[in-house]
């Protein structure tokens, strides 16, 4: 239970995608998202869908779990589909029911835009959240954004904040449970009453939780100072990230995919999306 929360949606594994350099994975997923938005024709979408299926198979994560990632976005997917279906106008009128007019272009657009959203979800979950631990992501982001330090962007500080936040999530969950137990033992009721009453019942949990979190923060800051922490300046890292040939091959394959999508848009423009 606890590890689920700490590591977000990370699925333990040792596949090729799991082992890629997290920096490359971040860049690759950005590129892939750009490629998804470049795709306009049905042929390009077909290619992208095939590539997404291929990547999912590569991760060896059960497709069931990938589907689960789509669940929270179901509403947005349906909403976009309906908007496109009913409000898109075009040349080929298919059905007319009173004021509702459905055109062929509307159906094509609805399908392709839904496909686009699904591809976005699959891409980010396969490349990032499902196969990379938050710690690796934080480290990778710090290194990728390192040039911004010259512009006085506190990159190291943000990454340290992320690291500490991740570290303290399980600790604070434990603490919350203890406080709930303590308040329940004193007769507090968190499970009945109206929404407002339940919201009010949370106050005696939140106040001790905040007080304790501040106390912890204070002690941790002292401990960090005693361990000679003075910020990012002059700091080294034990685990430095290495990119290997396979990382670059992977990145190239995404670039090639992008090129193929552009070519398919140009030369096989079947049922293109209209925006």
């Amino acid at each position: 239970m606890k590890s689920d929360i700490t590591f977000g949606q990370y699925v333990e594994g040792d596949s090729l995608i799991h082992r890629l350099d997290p920096r490359i994975k971040i860049i690759a997923s950005f590129l892939y998202i750009v490629v998804i938005f470049l795709a306009k024709s049905a042929s390009a979408f077909l290619l992208l869908t095939l590539s997404a299926v291929f990547f999912v198979l590569l991760t060896r994560i059960p497709p069931r779990m990938i589907l689960r990632a789509m669940k929270p976005l179901l509403f947005i997917i349906l909403f976009t589909a309906i908007i496109n279906l009913f409000f898109m106008t075009g040349e080929h009128l298919l059905v007319q029911l009173g004021f509702i007019k459905i055109y062929r272009e509307g159906i094509v657009n609805a399908c392709l835009i839904v496909l686009r959203i699904l591809l976005l979800i699959v891409a980010t979950s396969v490349f990032l959240t499902y196969t990379t631990t938050p710690i690796a992501l934080t480290d990778a982001l710090e290194q990728l954004l390192a040039p911004l330090k010259k512009l006085h962007v506190p990159v190291h500080e943000f990454s340290m904040m992320m690291t500490i936040a991740l570290r303290f999530i399980p600790t604070l969950i434990d603490e919350t449970q203890k406080i709930i137990n303590a308040q329940t033992a004193r007769g507090a009721d968190f499970t009945s009453g109206s929404l407002i009453q339940r919201g009010r019942a949370l106050v005696p949990i939140l106040i001790p939780l905040f007080i304790s979190a501040f106390r912890r923060a204070d002690e941790l800051a002292t401990a960090m100072e005693c361990r000679c922490y003075t910020g990012g300046e002059g700091r080294t890292r034990m685990n430095t990230l290495h990119s290997e040939p396979k990382d670059w091959v992977f990145l190239c394959s995404i670039v090639l995919l992008g090129a193929a999508v552009v070519l398919l848009n140009r030369f096989l423009p079947l049922m293109t999306i209209q925006l």
Binding site: I135, R216, A223, R227, R235, M238
Partner: peptide
């Protein structure tokens, strides 16, 4: 609990040395 900085054991042990450069 309030003096361990990193989630993974070995990364926390490394923390002080990393600060020393």
């Amino acid at each position: 609990d309030n003096q361990i900085v990193a989630t993974i054991v070995e990364e926390d042990v490394a923390f002080g040395c990393e600060n020393l450069g």
